[in-house]
Amino acid sequence: MFLITCPFCGEREQSEFKAGGEAHIERPKQPTELSDGEWAEYLFMRKNIKGIQFERWNHAHGCRKWFNIVRDTSNDKIKAVYKMGEKPPVK
């Protein structure tokens, strides 16, 4: 259990939010050109990092907006929060 600072609403309990998994996985620009292997990579394969991870979160029980978080998955400490479309902070 931890607190998340929503860039729109401020600090709230994690249970108000929905995790959206790894961030910055780009939707294929030419879906028709993709091989089965490339589809698998896009749909299923994940870094699943132990350590610093960039991820998406949604303030589901609040403003319902999506944003990004940089979090250490080994201890759940949040390093940075940034809005969708903003450049991810460098480590």
């Binding site: 259990m1 249970s15 995790a19 790894e22 699943n48 991820e55 759940d76």
Partner: peptide
């Protein structure tokens, strides 16, 4: 399960 990735071996109270 919690819905976020974590290796902390701790879960959320809710």
């Amino acid at each position: 399960t919690d819905d976020y990735i974590s290796y902390s071996q701790k879960g959320s109270h809710d």
